[in-house]
Nucleic acid binder design. Sequence first.
DNA 1: AACTACTGCTTGCATTTGCAAGCACTTTGC
DNA 2: GCAAAGTGCTTGCAAATGCAAGCAGTAGTT
Lengths: 116, 116
Amino acid sequence: MKTHLTDVGTFIREQREKSAMSLRKLADQAGISNPYLSQIERGLRRPSADILKSIARALSISVETLYERAGLLDGIPRSGVISAIEADPALTTSQKRALTEIYQSFVNDTQKEESP
Amino acid sequence: MKTHLTDVGTFIREQREKSAMSLRKLADQAGISNPYLSQIERGLRRPSADILKSIARALSISVETLYERAGLLDGIPRSGVISAIEADPALTTSQKRALTEIYQSFVNDTQKEESP
DNA sequence: AACTACTGCTTGCATTTGCAAGCACTTTGC
DNA sequence: GCAAAGTGCTTGCAAATGCAAGCAGTAGTT
């Protein structure tokens, strides 16, 4: 996790430098204190998701990118159906489980048919 | 933001109750203290993304769902499950039709239960 | 009744987060 | 050269997070 923390700080500094922004300018635009931004970039502090969100916005990059760097989101293999099932608020937990199992059995059946 | 905070806590409690889990059981599985989980559910504390991640995993729901409820990610239009089914090359046409119908019946069941 | 197990919550506290005040250094303009 | 402006960082502190110890209530068993 510390590895990820270093990554997000380093990544933020890189993006900031690519944008030719001073630390104070980015901090102002992100609405956070510049000492804190400095600490974040150097890996001395582990910012909350809110802070990352503010920084992402100020840097015009996606918040998901920063969350991934910070280890808050997984870099996603787009497995699609299963992810969508899990994310769907219209389904109960047991329905999700049932749907996932049905999906898996379908996929297994289809692959068995294709094997010979 | 306080609105979102209440939402994520309420949502977590709903999901927990749907799973017929005690507060202590969920806390244990999530690896957090049960008093803290209680505070989160009641909106007395605003958990970090790490904590939300742990809870999502223990509840078998996507972390994105919780982040959205917490205001950490923007809501994505939930076209999800049906689109994912249609796009999945691992499914035959008839399997897609069947899965979609099952999904629809689940969604209709869930909404009917919530109406009264 | 007493005891055990389970449930959700209260509370004090250690640690972490994020900030304000200010420092030291560098660059710019006169 | 000097003053002003700009730069990134140090440090002490308030507030927030997350926890451990424990309480009060409920249910089940002897």
